[in-house]
């Protein structure tokens, strides 16, 4: 299978091509040829640096999840704005420990990123055994509600996506 030989990682190659076209901001045929060439070579050269990859089980859930995160980012900013502009002495910050059901590296990474970008919480540390995520919250009544909200709103859909 020569095509398989030439393109062992078709999705990475496609990603490089799209990145190249975006960087040059053009759909000129020359750029497409050059981007395709780089897309063939780069994944081969850098294959050793890639950590474990994860299969996405339900692509459509990714779209829904992304839309939800974008909406939450806007909510997060309004809440940060209120916390920053209001009196500081009324804030109730603290740490919460979130037990993880996700096991894959990619899943945990995406969850940590989502937590940081969404309202009131910031992922601060992952325990060495990868079973607990330490989260800092800016203004919440107690830690249990933060943990419950993260698990139901973000971890469950991610579990469905990455398994």
């Amino acid at each position: 299978m020569p095509l398989r030989r030439l393109l062992p990682h078709p999705w990475r190659s496609l990603g490089v091509l799209v990145l190249w076209l975006l960087l040059n901001n053009s759909l000129h045929p020359g750029h497409i040829v050059l981007g395709a060439a780089i897309g063939c070579v780069l994944p081969l050269v850098t294959a050793r640096f890639w950590p474990s990859t994860a299969a996405i089980r339900r692509p459509w859930r990714v779209v829904a999840f992304t839309a939800m995160v974008i909406f939450d980012v806007i909510v997060a900013n309004l809440r940060v704005a209120r916390a920053v502009l209001g009196p500081v002495s009324r804030l109730r910050p603290g740490f919460a420990r979130v037990p993880l059901d996700l096991t894959t590296d990619v899943g945990i990474t995406v969850l940590a990123q989502t937590i940081t970008l969404t309202p009131g919480t910031l992922s601060a540390d992952l325990s060495p055994d990868r079973r607990t995520l330490i989260v800092h919250y800016l203004d919440e009544p107690d830690a249990e509600s933060v943990v419950a909200a993260i698990k139901s709103r973000y971890e469950r859909p991610l579990k469905e996506i990455f398994g």
């Binding site: 980012v73 940060v80 920053v84 804030l91 910050p93 910031l122 800092h136 800016l138």
Partner: peptide, 12 residues
């Protein structure tokens, strides 16, 4: 830790 909240969300 609270100072990290501002830059990580709002500047994004």
């Amino acid at each position: 830790f609270t100072r990290l909240h501002g830059p990580s969300k709002a500047t994004t």
